[in-house]
Design a protein around this nucleic acid. Structure first.
Lengths: 230, 230
DNA sequence: CGGTAGATTGAGCCCAATCAATACCGGTGG
DNA sequence: CCACCGGTATTGATTGGGCTCAATCTACCG
């Protein structure tokens, strides 16, 4: 009965998004159904804090709509983003293996819809459903990969290079001109790239000479190949 | 027969180290035996390159003795370490989920002994041995965690803070005095912390005022609590 | 006792963070 | 439709942390 309630909370739109999530999309029908049964939907307003580092953790999350900021604080209260999660992304899934406390703070960067999954129940599922175990492995691998990329980028690239890299990985063009619309605020992009907002601004204006024009959230690139030379 | 050969290559010392590896230590007897059967041992001299970014990948690795440097290059040929792997650490295991090319360069920082595991065979094992799947999950999670920690540290902490943090996590004392012996060269530690060797030197001398004395590879800390205040 | 690799120290520079002020944009309400 | 307002973005000036390069120092090994 409770199961019915949970499923009812999923409107068609949310349900479809959930199916396309990095995690669920890999599952076979049985495993998929089990996961859907477990899913709880929650909504948050922009700036809402989902959880804080060190708090007891019982769930991991998949983003359905909107963006979530995962970040840490240092002793002085300065914040640094660790990851920005958008539609289809999963976070805190590394608690599935071990750990009962959240490892970072999570905040909605705008109104968001999330699916929550109880860690215990998914652990139990993974025991018997190979599909679920495989999805977890896949998901963790992807994360690990992007996270290692992030370290390498932080340590090797300057601000304009990071921005160029972001643009190149987000325009699906091989050469010539391209146009991108940022899915979120520039301040969020700055955090994602490990920059202060001012540094992002300056990076954009440094890229003007490479044919990058920014107006609001839309970015025009006159020559993709030129950007690759940065 | 080939099996016998492989096992013969494992001397008792290597075998015992392998058993204590982050990966194998979690396995039950059956799974453990299967993995041991697959393991190939290789040795490298310091500076040897194990593989390069982009090369076809067929194995992942566990370190038995020595240290391995995982690093990327930028267009100018500058290097940045992504991870330093020591005895018990596993690397390139994220290729188990997906990918047939190495994601970074790997170099022996000193003479090392490694166990190699064929990706295909381990994937096949994981299908039926839940233990293996679980070990993979555990391994990836740990790895992801430390990698995210690394990003947060890079973005939030100054050089002396990173060094202090390293010292604190590597002396098993809660307060009072402590002594540490670095398991590798300082230049390797520098890379691990995302610093140039010179910056590490300067960080150490900045920590003198906090009661940190460095002589060769041994580091004396007069007051652990004082270090935490950095 | 040199020789060599690693570590330290100093000087100069560069990049990005910070702080502060201004410009812009999007919405709201008159 | 315009004026206003709050949050976002940009720009400028300054600071500071860490990199680079080069020179010296040290430790280890033949």
């Amino acid at each position: 009965m409770t199961t019915v309630n949970k499923i009812l909370r999923l409107n068609t739109r949310d349900k479809n998004t959930l199916l396309r999530t990095s995690f669920l999309s890999q599952l076979g029908p049985t495993a998929m159904a089990s996961m859907m049964e477990i899913a709880h939907i929650s909504n948050y307003e922009g700036r809402d804090v989902l959880f804080r580092e060190g708090e007891p953790a019982d769930c991991f999350y998949s983003v359905l709509t909107g963006y979530v900021r995962l970040y840490r604080l240092n002793k002085d209260g300065r914040e640094a983003d660790i990851r920005i999660c958008g539609p289809g992304d999963t976070f805190s899934e590394c608690l599935l293996a071990l750990g009962d406390r959240y490892l970072y703070n999570a905040q909605a960067a705008e109104p968001v819809t999330l699916a929550r999954f109880d860690l215990q129940r998914v652990r139990a599922l993974a025991e018997h459903e190979t599909d679920v175990a495989k999805a977890i492995i896949r998901c963790l691998s992807d994360h690990l990969r992007t996270t290692m990329d992030c370290i390498a980028n932080d340590r090797l690239q300057t601000a304009p290079q990071r921005v160029a890299h972001y643009l190149l990985t987000h325009c699906n063009t091989d050469g010539g001109a391209a146009s991108i619309r940022l899915p979120f605020q520039k301040s969020l992009l700055a955090g994602k790239l490990g920059l202060a907002p001012e540094a992002l601004s300056r990076a954009f204006s440094a890229l003007k000479r490479c044919g990058v024009v920014v107006r609001g959230r839309t970015i025009q690139i006159s020559d993709v190949n030129a950007l690759k030379q940065i």
